[in-house]
Design a protein around this nucleic acid. Structure first.
Lengths: 249, 249
DNA sequence: CCTCGAAATGAATGAGCATTCATTCAATAT
DNA sequence: ATATTGAATGAATGCTCATTCATTTCGAGG
């Protein structure tokens, strides 16, 4: 067996989708090109309204080439969904010092998750709209990815409990509430954006979660945290100055 | 203007979809028949994989007849989504004494919402999967319905605040969290069902929400509430013995 | 037991689109 | 130069439906 180029996890192994082309480097580059177009189109128009012809045109390649790098349209969807979930799994841990103050790490995780979602809201909704369009086996890959992504958040929660800041809640369940809180920003953006901003949404949400779980000691700690970030608020709310793909604005 | 037969709200006005058939009674009956089939098929297979031929067959009518009661396939989807959302708006208030103890009314609302979702989980997911398949105007009808449905929950929250049981939270935002908590049971059932049961899910969720918002007085009240329902737990968790469509089991 | 309009039928139409494959292109080896 | 082979192309194929409409059935009134 050839060793894959350090996939983030077994579930991210792109080789579940077969390619006619043998040059591995080329496969990665072409697929990136195709998937970038596909994610945008799927996100905007949905899976079924998007044709392979559309994707090929937007990617600047021929229809036939798409079929050199994926066997079916469903494969393209799978690669697209994997790409979106992978970006979550990559970006969130990068913004968080896992060994920092547990409460701050949790804040930073939620904040980053929400901002990542906000940056590509339609992509965030894509999984909800389209996962059922995949055959069972492929759907399970996506579910596995989601579980893995959640694990990082779960760890941040466990740290808060271990530090005596939170009472012993059901971590798996609360993790899903945190995840859904982030996703909700995309799912219900048409309404929520009329009620608040993303930064206020994050602040109110975090406040809510802390109150739901904090011990007395945790509440004190939270108060200190608030006065700390109160000063450098702007900085804390934007944990990363967002890597630019190309030129600066 | 003919007076419609007491629609729950302007948004529920079925006349947004035009019918060739003039007999109003007949339109209602036939549409019920068609929509019942459509909801099931859309829920199981999704909008695009479901054909009008499928719907007609399952409803026991001809293809042409479907087009007598709706002008396009999108119309059928709109009617289907309306039917699902209407069932929420109908069933939740029915199970709740709005003038009872505010905390109990909130519990009952959340519990009923979750149970209603649980009873038809695929239908619950339908809106998330398919709303974007509608043209803007129709999509807005669905959004309006959702906002209206949420309003009942929002009122229960306001009562708790007015009674001094909850602190002054952002009602609109928390309402969405409650709604999404119920929806999440359907959206992530593949995972959550491995972690807990619906009844435990409701209990844990309610406990979480109460801790997030309760005043000291509210917490005392919640303790009393817990010991009260602790006795008649089974009854409280199933607020309605579920109307049977036909024979008893 | 006719008549006539509303309801219901389902075969036929035609547009849209996933997938294929004969052909061309380009790079490397001979 | 020329042969070989992996990549890339995009027109052609064939199937799947949404929608239509010519025809049939139904039922109330005469």
């Amino acid at each position: 067996m050839t060793k894959s180029p350090a996939p983030l996890s077994k579930a991210f192994d792109q080789t579940v989708v077969k390619s006619q082309v043998t040059n591995e480097k080329l496969v990665l580059r072409r697929r990136e090109q195709i998937v970038a177009a596909a994610v945008e189109l799927f996100s905007d128009q949905g899976y079924y309204k998007t044709t392979i012809q559309d994707i090929a045109r937007k990617a600047g390649v021929s229809v036939g080439l798409v079929y050199q790098y994926a066997q079916t349209k469903e494969d393209v969807l799978l690669l697209s969904l994997m790409s979106v979930l992978e970006s979550y799994q990559r970006e969130i841990p990068r913004a968080v010092h896992a060994d920092a103050d547990p409460l701050e790490a949790l804040w930073c995780s939620l904040s980053t998750y929400c901002h990542v979602i906000d940056r590509r809201r339609n992509a965030g909704v894509l999984a909800y709209r389209s996962t059922k369009s995949l055959p069972r086996a492929q759907r399970e890959i996506i579910m596995q990815l989601e579980v893995e992504t959640n694990e990082f958040l779960a760890e941040r929660l466990r740290s808060c409990i271990a530090a005596g800041l939170f009472r012993k809640v059901n971590v798996d369940l609360v993790t899903y509430q945190l995840v859904l809180y982030a996703h909700t920003w995309a799912l219900k953006h048409w309404r929520l954006s009329k009620l608040t901003t993303i930064d206020s949404y994050i602040e109110q949400g975090f406040d809510f979660f802390v109150h739901a779980m904090a011990t007395p000691a945790g509440l004190v700690h939270y108060g200190q945290f608030l006065s700390r970030v109160g000063n450098k608020a702007k900085a804390a709310k934007r944990p990363k100055p967002r890597k630019q793909t190309a030129a600066a604005s």
